[in-house]
């Protein structure tokens, strides 16, 4: 028997690994990857809660499903933007992205 909390602990670690990456990395793609981690950990939580606490229902399941779909869309757009930026300034370091500020 695996306790629900085990899953939660794993996902929490993953979540904060993502957050740390989000702070730490300076590359846009790396930041995006960190976001994927965060999303994934949340997905796990949804699935786990659904399975353990509300076994008769499907909300968590579907939420995860939709989240995967949306994250795919988000990634696609983000990567398109990143490529476009790269084309314009030959760099994707966040510290260089300050053109719109001025």
């Amino acid at each position: 028997m695996i306790h629900m909390e085990y899953y939660l602990v794993v996902s929490t670690i993953m979540f904060f690994a993502g957050i740390f990456g989000f702070f730490y990395r300076r590359n846009l793609l790396a930041i995006l990857i960190s976001i994927e981690l965060i999303l994934n950990s949340v997905d796990i939580n949804f699935a786990v809660f659904n399975r353990y606490l509300f076994p008769g229902q499907l909300e968590g399941f579907f939420f995860t499903l939709f989240a995967i779909g949306i994250s795919a869309a988000e990634t696609a757009v983000a990567i398109a933007i990143i490529i476009n930026i790269y084309r314009n300034i030959r760099n994707i370091q966040v510290s260089k992205l300050d053109k719109m500020k001025h």
Binding site: I19, F22, F23, V94, K101
Partner: peptide
């Protein structure tokens, strides 16, 4: 600053 990471940090 416009740096999303900084915002996120503060947010966290």
């Amino acid at each position: 600053s416009g740096q999303i990471q900084q915002y996120a940090f503060v947010f966290l």
